[in-house]
Structure formats: structure tokens, C-alpha cells
């Protein structure tokens, strides 16, 4: 049986990202109960060991692309290597994770085989044996089901949307194959040089049991004082922000929660003036209790909140502080 589904794992420094294991769930949606219909692809300069581990944990065979050009993430070289592999001709689905680099490589592979490229897929169904892919629009306010019009399809899948399935056959011995890749780089005009971690300033977000988060909806920079004041009132609380607020430089990126920032799961997350962009939700949806305060009753954040307050922050935040202090009179 030729491989039907190619799953492209996300790797950095020869380690596979945790989200890459979710691709096994994508394969299971495409061919339920048939991990042997899928194969992982992973790239690095010393990646076979990581491939072995990935294969054992998912019961899906793995093809490890090894080469110097994969020392640093290189979506261009990865796509070129995928385009050159014989398995691509018979693969029906080529699946990447929905990250900028995943979308980049996906688009390049799709262009090569002239296939539909559908990103941010959150659910996969079938209708007359044809795949129907579901993705979200307008920050989750609308969903669409779309049917690819090409035989082969390249997709990127939303993190968190597909759970890694249990391994049904404990005796499965998935194959791991190492392929040395020497993509012709002479004419490449894409040269990764270094990878570095952004400077960390301690925001206390990792330790906080309560997080008060501010979004663009707080309106004015001076209203940040209210956010800080609430965080100071509540025990073991820290201040977080959505990306647009950091873009305005009202708070540093160290405070950013979401896809490109921190992932947090405090006891209580109070989202103030945050609309609920998916990129933000990815970073905080596992919080134990979510309170959302927003003037827009249709804000997407309300779909995941435990307590929803449609109100103006400038009015409401001082009221929470008062109510909390009334509950704990010795604090005020």
C-alpha cells in the first residue's frame, strides 16, 4: 500500500515539537484506524533518533531527511526535498502544521504538484468519499466547509484541533528510514544563519495563579493602569497582553500570550478588552477559569469564557476591586 498521507513534523535543533504529534490525529481523521497509511517526514542534521521516538509513540512510520542544510529550520529546502521524494506522486494528503513556516513549505509543495492548498484546517469529514475540510474565519465567528477540487491536497492543521490517537496495535513496528538529503543549495537564495531566543524579562506569568490580560479593547494606554491595579489587588497575579497591544508597545512582547508568545494555564484568566483572536486563544484556553470583559457581546472570547461580562472596563474594573476588597476586608 503506497503512503496515502504525508505528515510533516515541525523540528528545531533535531527535536520534534509537541504539536507535531497531533498530526497523527490528522492522519487518523483521513484514514481512521490505519496508521500504516501515513508516514511522518522530519528534517534535521541528526534527526533519525527523533524519528525513531516519533514513530514509536504514534505507530506511524517515519522518513528522516538528514543533511547539513537542515541544521536550522529551512522551509524552502524542506519543500524541495519533499517535491523530490517518490512518495509524493502517490500521496493524496500532504499535511503541515499551521505556522508561518508550515504554510510557507505547504505553498511551495502545492505549487509544485498544482494541488489545492488549504490552511488552518480544524476538522476533516467525508462526503461521498471526498474530503470536506472545515476551517474558521473572522476569529471563529464563522466556519466554512470547503471541498478541494484537486486529487492531491496540501493542508495545514490548527494546533489543538486534532488529538493524538491511542495506539491500537501495540505490536506495530513502524519503519524508520533515514535518507541523506543533499538538496542542491548552490542556487538557493534562502540562507538561514542563526536561531536565537528572544530576550526574557521576568513578567511572572509562568508562576502566576491569576493572570489579568489586556487587549486592544482597553482603548487608551492610560487604561493599562486599571489592569495593573487589578493585578496588584488580586493574590499572586501577573499582567499579560494580546499581540496588538504589544505591537503598540504599550507592554513588551514578554507579556504576550498566544501563538507567537507564551502559553499559560493559570487558575484564573481575566481577559479585558480581548476580542478572542484564535492566535490569542491558543495561548490561554487551558486556563482553569476564564473571565471575559468586553463591550462587544459578539466577541469570540465569550465562546470560551466561564463568566462573560459585557461592560466598559473603565467602569467595571474598579467595581471588581471594590467587590474583592469587600470580600477580604483585611486587605483594604
Amino acid at each position: 500500500m503506497p503512503v496515502r498521507t504525508l505528515l510533516i513534523a515541525d523540528t528545531l535543533n533535531n527535536a520534534v515539537s509537541a504539536k507535531s504529534f497531533e498530526l497523527a490525529g490528522v492522519a487518523d481523521s483521513l484514514s481512521p484506524g490505519r496508521p500504516d497509511h501515513a508516514a511522518y517526514i522530519l528534517a534535521g542534521d541528526d534527526i533519525t533518533g527523533a524519528g525513531q521516538d516519533l514513530a514509536e509513540k504514534t505507530a506511524i512510520s517515519a522518513i528522516a531527511f538528514e543533511g547539513k542544510m537542515f541544521r536550522l529550520p529551512d522551509p524552502e529546502a524542506l519543500a524541495t526535498a519533499i517535491c523530490a521524494m517518490p512518495e509524493l506522486a502517490t500521496a493524496r494528503y500532504i499535511c503541515f502544521l499551521h505556522t508561518p513556516a508550515g504554510c510557507h513549505a505547504a505553498a511551495k509543495v502545492a505549487a509544485h504538484i498544482d494541488a489545492a492548498c488549504i490552511s488552518g484546517v480544524a476538522n476533516i469529514g467525508f462526503d461521498d468519499d471526498q474530503p470536506v475540510l472545515e476551517r474558521s474565519l473572522l476569529n471563529g465567528k464563522v466556519s466554512m466547509k470547503t471541498r478541494p477540487q484537486t486529487e492531491q491536497v496540501v493542508i495545514t492543521t490548527m494546533p489543538g484541533a486534532f488529538a493524538t490517537p491511542e495506539i491500537a496495535d501495540q505490536h506495530a513496528r513502524p519503519r524508520v528510514e533515514c535518507r541523506t538529503v543533499t538538496v542542491a543549495l548552490a542556487d538557493s537564495r534562502f540562507h538561514p544563519e542563526t536561531v536565537s531566543k528572544a530576550e526574557e524579562t521576568d513578567t511572572g506569568l509562568d508562576r502566576a495563579s491569576i493572570i489579568v490580560a489586556a487587549g486592544r479593547g482597553i482603548g487608551d494606554e492610560e487604561n493599562l493602569a486599571l489592569i495593573h491595579s487589578l493585578a496588584r489587588t488580586l493574590p499572586n497575579a501577573a499582567v499579560a497582553a494580546s499581540r496588538p497591544l504589544c505591537d503598540l508597545k504599550w507592554l513588551s512582547y514578554a507579556h504576550q500570550v498566544g501563538a507567537t508568545g507564551k502559553t499559560v494555564s493559570p487558575k484564573l484568566y481575566i481577559a479585558c478588552g480581548i476580542s478572542g483572536a484564535q492566535q490569542h486563544l491558543q495561548g490561554m484556553q487551558d486556563s482553569q477559569c476564564i473571565v471575559a470583559v468586553n463591550t462587544d457581546p459578539n466577541a469570540a472570547i465569550f465562546s470560551i469564557a466561564d463568566y462573560c461580562i459585557v461592560d466598559d472596563l473603565v467602569r467595571f474594573i474598579p467595581e471588581i476591586i471594590t467587590a474583592y476588597e469587600a470580600l477580604n476586608p483585611d486587605l483594604s
Partner: peptide
């Protein structure tokens, strides 16, 4: 260019909100 995908249906997802509006 040719057609690469066809929309089957666009819908407002059912509110999964378990939350309480105060």
C-alpha cells in the same frame, strides 16, 4: 486560474459557550 476549492457551506458555529453572562 482554475478552481482549487469549492465552498460547501458557510455557517455560524453553534455557541459552545458554557459560560454565564452576568
Amino acid at each position: 486560474p482554475g478552481q482549487y476549492q469549492k465552498i460547501r457551506r458557510v455557517f455560524v458555529p453553534e455557541k459552545t459557550a458554557h459560560g454565564e453572562f452576568l
